[in-house]
Design a protein around this nucleic acid. Structure first.
Lengths: 250, 250
DNA sequence: GGGCAATATTTGTCTATACATATATACAAA
DNA sequence: TTTGTATATATGTATAGACAAATATTGCCC
């Protein structure tokens, strides 16, 4: 191996760390087509020499690209440019409760009703109860500046020993519903997004028209012990929501 | 600082690397509620001592959790457990063209029509052309075992110098449409998912009913030079598609 | 007690090195 | 021709140490 001076250099006075400067440079070469899909990018050793960086720093840069599915590393062979996907993507859905906590954003929750009901067939299955056992059923409307946006409907595991304060149900996020029963507090959720149209009642509550398009997001909410502690749906007004997935970009 | 023997130990003979063993242990403590939302997890130095690992290895473990939004690090303060999000999530949409390439999965594409048309107002804006310039307009149906699932409708930048082979349009993914013009080949896309209902024609083409719920995914497809090279929509039958986001898990 | 400077703590970045593991190639032996 | 071995190269994991930058704590002076 012939020793030589670095070809590229990082800007040392820049606030952008070296590993990111290298990652961005490689990304640019990939997206510009200089490094085509399927081809091998320079080895880590070569990048070390070319940029005058240590291998760990080079690896970190490659790790960034690998995380974003721009390259794929194979031990003993090298690191290769992945075929760019223009189909497929990742959608983030909004977290209203986060918004409500952090800013005075005009969001608020209206409690439509709370009932202790006996679990129906599906609810019993989803909450792992026997049919007829008591569950909590709540309905809420999420509004932005007095305009209804989301209809929330949930079945919750009901701990009869705890007193039920309706004031708690109207505000805050689902986690707060379980604050009094720590072992039932939710830690994660499975979400399923489907397309639907509003029925009579939903249309009335959401100040929209029957048959109007909408999203239905089914939620299965789990506690730490993998117990399902809540099950329900959010109905999002189709004219107020769209989910976006914006391509790549460091 | 008092020197002491490690409290925990990694299994050295395990094939699971140390950083993952630590990450999983921490994840378990977070999801079990032992490390509650908002609290600080042990410092990197403490974890080094407790587990007998170097700081870089500890940092890598924390990096895994950070990537998955379980913790958030703050310089000079520490690393904190993030409030678990039961709202909000990440949806992946299917990549049919990938499926079609890799397996004999019963998917196929039927070309409904190809036309060279003069760009309308919206198409002209989206493709950065003057109104009236020529664009390629194609319509396709994506089927699984002869059942129509998706209606694809696209405007494409049209390179008049290249001959147009209809055979190419019917099969393969959008990238193949541009194979003859390398500088126009797509590298990424912005996607927007909205809720809609089928109109008369869409219902007929998708073998469904007018007014039935459906997803509409608008696509803005970009080439390497950030030029928008295609614009269109996919209409997904609402009764055939749902998008799921399954909670966390290493 | 309040304000301020010095010190300690904590995470962020980077280097240098070591060994493990997977791959590709060349060459020798069966 | 096949099999085995040695070697070079590549990525994967882990260690130890250094300095930087942001924050928290302590102690001192007024």
């Amino acid at each position: 191996m012939v020793e030589r001076a670095p070809i590229h250099t990082v800007e040392l006075d820049s606030y952008v760390p070296a590993y990111l400067q290298l990652a961005r440079s490689l990304e640019e070469r990939i997206l510009s087509g200089e490094l085509k899909a399927g081809t091998r990018i320079p080895t880590e050793s070569e990048l070390c020499c070319d940029w005058g960086l240590s291998r760990m720093t080079v690896r970190r840069a490659i790790g960034v690209l690998s995380e974003r599915c721009l390259v794929r590393s194979e031990r003993g062979r090298g690191t290769f440019v992945i075929n760019p996907r223009t189909e497929g993507g990742v959608f983030l859905i909004p977290d209203f409760y986060e918004e409500m906590r952090s800013t005075d954003s005009g969001y608020n929750v209206t409690l439509l009703g709370v009932k202790v009901v006996s679990a129906g067939k599906k609810a019993a299955v989803m909450l792992d109860l026997r049919k007829g056992q008591s569950v909590l059923y709540i309905e809420r409307i999420l509004e932005e500046r007095c305009e209804p946006l989301v209809f929330d409907r949930k079945y919750l595991l009901f701990d009869g020993r705890q007193p039920l304060l309706e004031a708690e149900l109207g505000h805050g996020d689902p986690a707060s519903l379980f604050e009094r029963s720590p072992d039932m507090s939710p830690v994660r959720a499975d979400l399923h997004l489907t397309a639907t149209i509003l029925n009579e009642r939903e249309a009335r509550l959401l100040n929209s028209d029957r048959g109007a398009p909408a999203f239905c997001m089914e939620q299965e909410i789990y506690a730490a012990n993998d117990r399902r502690v809540a099950w329900g749906w959010h109905i999002y007004r189709g004219d107020k929501f769209s989910f976006s997935s914006l391509g790549r970009g460091l």
